[in-house]
Amino acid sequence: MTHLKEKVARLRRSYAPHEYRPLGGYLVAMGTYAGVTASLAALVKVTGRPVPRRPALADVMLLCVATHKLSRLLAKDAVTSPLRAPFTRYTQPIGSGEVMEAVRDSGSSTRHAIGELVSCPFCLAVWVATGLTGGLVLVPRLTRLVATALTAVTASDFLQMAYAVAQRVAEGGGEH
């Protein structure tokens, strides 16, 4: 066991000699993702739910927008910051109800890796898309309903931003 730990420590040092990279934490995250994905696949098999040969384009587009919104909500929204707080530290607001956070450097590679995951909408998107795709197979009506709500919120966000820009222009504060 000591020999293995030494090998892992050497690998970590040679991989990123000038920066801390939580390789062990990344392994835990990848293992967890593989376990969740395998569990979803097993659940699909056990329940006998049919897996579409080719998903409908409308479902793909719906899940694209829903994945974007849910990933962003989980990773950046001020209201969801209590979920990230054990792994991140607040740094500043970044507008539209979102916050910027830094990963806590606690010495635990797993905690650090989770902090990177939960504060990065791009990183979370893989997990969210997997969950929504599994939901589309296991409970398609409910998943489509939730994805539709997330898509409506995304459209609303863009309309709110466009309205704010139009309002600034109308008041003479924007560029023409």
Rank of each mutant, 00 (worst) to 15 (best):
L4S: 10
L4K: 09
A9P: 13
R13K: 15
R13H: 15
R13T: 15
Y15T: 15
Y15C: 14
P17H: 10
Y20I: 11
Y20N: 13
G25C: 05
L27T: 13
Y33D: 03
Y33H: 06
V36C: 06
V36M: 07
V36F: 04
V36R: 01
T37W: 06
A41G: 07
A42Q: 13
V44D: 12
V46A: 15
R49H: 12
V51R: 01
P55A: 01
D59R: 06
M61H: 06
M61W: 06
L62E: 03
V65Q: 04
T67R: 01
H68W: 06
H68C: 02
K69H: 13
L70D: 03
S71F: 02
R72I: 05
R72Q: 12
R72L: 08
L73F: 08
A78W: 05
T80N: 05
T80K: 07
S81F: 12
P82K: 05
L83M: 10
P86S: 08
F87S: 04
T91S: 10
T91M: 06
P93Q: 13
I94K: 11
G95N: 04
G95Q: 05
M100R: 15
E101T: 14
A102R: 10
A102Y: 03
V103L: 00
S106W: 04
S106P: 02
S109C: 11
T110A: 11
R111D: 10
I114R: 02
E116L: 13
S119T: 09
C120V: 02
P121S: 07
A125P: 05
G131W: 02
V139E: 14
R141W: 05
L142D: 07
R144T: 06
A147L: 03
T148L: 12
T148C: 01
A149C: 15
L150D: 08
Q160H: 14
A162F: 13
A162Y: 14
A164E: 04
V165H: 13
A166E: 11
A170E: 05
G172S: 05
G172K: 06
G173M: 10
G174A: 10
